[in-house]
Nucleic acid binder design. Sequence first.
DNA 1: ACCTCAGTCTACCGATCGGTAGGCTGGGCC
DNA 2: GGCCCAGCCTACCGATCGGTAGACTGAGGT
Lengths: 226, 226
Amino acid sequence: MDVREETLRQATRLFAAKGFDGTSLKDIADVVGVRKPSLLYHFSSKDELRRSVIDALLERWNAVLPRLLMAAASGEDRFASLMRETVRFFTQDPDRARLLLREILDRPDDLAARLETHVQPWVTVIADYIRKGQEAGEVHADLDPEAYILQVVNLVVSGIAIGASLDRGMLPPSAVDEPADRHARELIRIARISLFTPEALARIAGGSETPKATSHDGAEASRTSP
Amino acid sequence: MDVREETLRQATRLFAAKGFDGTSLKDIADVVGVRKPSLLYHFSSKDELRRSVIDALLERWNAVLPRLLMAAASGEDRFASLMRETVRFFTQDPDRARLLLREILDRPDDLAARLETHVQPWVTVIADYIRKGQEAGEVHADLDPEAYILQVVNLVVSGIAIGASLDRGMLPPSAVDEPADRHARELIRIARISLFTPEALARIAGGSETPKATSHDGAEASRTSP
DNA sequence: ACCTCAGTCTACCGATCGGTAGGCTGGGCC
DNA sequence: GGCCCAGCCTACCGATCGGTAGACTGAGGT
């Protein structure tokens, strides 16, 4: 058995369930099936284990991105496909969502830095989406794209994290694709509501569904009325 | 100085910032300005302190409800005013939002029970809103109103909690009323998106803004287009 | 046959955890 | 004045924390 790999897996589970401070190295060692010092042979400290767990998660997340960014090269529905794939990724294993939600709460700055280095394409696309929207006058101008990244991550993971921890409710983790897709569409709407100026919002929600033919939109082009 | 009261206040701050497991009794005692055993004179254990902190928060929350439920006795915009006042309550002091978000993650069942007993009117209105919507065929029938309560709480607090912990972003905690009101309107939309069937949703978002003249709607009647 | 060394173990460290025992003190009551 | 007791204190408890030292083992290389 690959102890290092198994440790990462079990630590992910336990950190997600009980939090970093609520999980002792002994807890992890017990479920891995080794003694505590063996963990510290593979990871020099508990905090390095935490960083490794987070980084491993972010790497996996990052790994699913190039494929779809290639597929959706058209550029316009990048945002939509990114959101859909992201939701799917976190719904597949809700521990991922819980883990990130805890990190956002406990160490937001550390997480932001790690996102920047490990999931850089994702961060770039989101920030670009916001910036283009600002240029088009549709997104609140005072919104800092960089700072808003964590809010978008929060938006994605919080619903999944809680829904799964209830093990009932709106997002059953059993069947992934269908609910994940629906959830992603909801999130796209929500993201807009949070981002857009009241005027732009009124055009979308109040008037006709298609808001305006700016380059920046088209997020919903693939799937408009459910 | 009222040590008990000050302890509740500081424990709320620290639990919200660092979590229950990340906060020691000594941490709390230090900022309160007493020694550790003095805390245990007022609270028989650390866990009783936690329960007291949560209960105190829920009591305060509950205290703001009767006023507005009286005011919005018409019955139709109860849901909207409830959401608005709730958002305002949590935006006033984002530690409240962070604290509840942590409780949802760590002890969902315990929190659900406490909500049921300490914020019963709120829980009732939300559950009723969902039930009426189900009777009208607008809300997904397989949604368990009881189980969904925590998701609604999560929906409200997660955005506020993270936004505030970033101390920048979409919800600056400085000026409360205006952003809180806007946020509440967004939340009402989001709640609908999560709750409603695709058909009901299409009527609202795709077609005309006023969906259908059921008794259950009117949530947005007071404030439709921003 | 011998050496090396990755990997795991037992035994232990000081610090800190939540919690307890019991003493001191000062204001209110008789 | 004498008593009582709420409220805070110092001193201490065993358990557990993250982390270290050093012995053991077994597979691979020479």
